[in-house]
Simulated assay, not measured.
Amino acid sequence: MKLFAALILWITVISAPDIASIRKMYPTVGKSEANAKEFTAKLAGIANTDETILVAYKAASILLDSKYEKKLSSKMNRFKEGAKLLESTITSEPNSVEIRMIRLSIQENVPGITGYKKNIKEDKAFIIAHINEQNATLKEYIKAFIVQSKSFSAKEKQSAK
């Protein structure tokens, strides 16, 4: 029995995606259905009780994947599922710059008809106010997001470089 428990633990640790690989994939997931599906598959094993940042990326994967659903009802259900999950991560960690960046990246790219665009200004202001408090790796990652984002002005993008 102990061997079985150790094997399960080992498989869980090995198969859990690491945040560095998730961050590396995220900027390209919206570029194709294949990228979105791969990202969704990588995060499929994340439970809602796992590390909040991984849950936020899982929520983003659901939102991105909803774009490729064939039926409108399935598309809407997936979108609502992802948005609800992402909002729950922000509720549990409202001061996470990275989770705010994830929501901003989603909201600036979804169609207006979804009604899921109300936090763009809030998240942008939060990111600008708190980016310098982040560790070097996360700061560079967020700066790279700012440079390609639709929500930041040319002056803000230049400041991020």
Rank of each mutant, 00 (worst) to 15 (best):
M1I: 06
K2D: 12
L3N: 11
F4Y: 08
F4T: 08
F4S: 08
A5R: 13
A6L: 14
A6E: 14
A6C: 08
A6F: 12
L7V: 10
I8P: 01
I8W: 07
I8Y: 13
W10I: 15
I11L: 15
I11Q: 12
T12D: 11
V13D: 09
V13H: 08
I14C: 12
I14T: 10
I14M: 12
S15T: 15
A16S: 15
A16H: 11
P17C: 02
D18N: 14
A20E: 15
A20W: 07
I22R: 10
I22H: 06
K24C: 01
K24H: 13
Y26S: 10
P27D: 01
P27W: 03
V29C: 00
V29N: 06
S32L: 07
N35R: 06
K37D: 09
E38Q: 10
F39G: 05
F39E: 04
T40W: 12
K42P: 04
K42F: 02
K42E: 10
L43M: 04
L43K: 07
A44K: 09
A44H: 02
G45E: 07
I46G: 03
A47L: 13
N48C: 04
D50C: 08
D50E: 10
D50F: 00
E51W: 06
L54W: 06
V55F: 02
A56H: 03
Y57M: 07
A60Y: 01
L63Q: 10
L64D: 11
D65L: 06
D65A: 09
K67D: 08
Y68W: 12
L72M: 13
S73R: 07
S74N: 10
M76W: 05
F79H: 05
K80E: 07
E81Y: 03
E81N: 12
G82R: 06
A83H: 00
K84P: 03
E87K: 06
S88V: 01
S88K: 15
T89G: 06
I90K: 12
T91E: 15
T91C: 01
T91S: 11
E93H: 07
N95T: 13
N95M: 12
S96N: 11
V97S: 05
E98G: 02
E98N: 08
M101T: 02
M101K: 09
I102D: 12
R103Y: 02
L104W: 10
I106Q: 09
I106W: 04
E108H: 05
N109E: 14
V110G: 01
P111Y: 00
G112H: 05
I113V: 14
K117L: 05
K118N: 11
I120Q: 07
E122I: 13
E122A: 15
D123C: 04
K124T: 04
A125Q: 14
A125D: 15
I127E: 00
H130Y: 02
I131P: 00
N132L: 08
N132M: 10
N132H: 11
E133L: 12
A136L: 13
T137S: 14
T137M: 06
L138A: 09
I142E: 04
A144L: 03
A144T: 03
F145D: 09
I146S: 06
S149N: 09
K150N: 11
K150L: 13
S151I: 01
S151L: 03
S151A: 08
S153G: 00
A154L: 08
A154G: 04
E156Q: 08
A160H: 10
K161V: 14
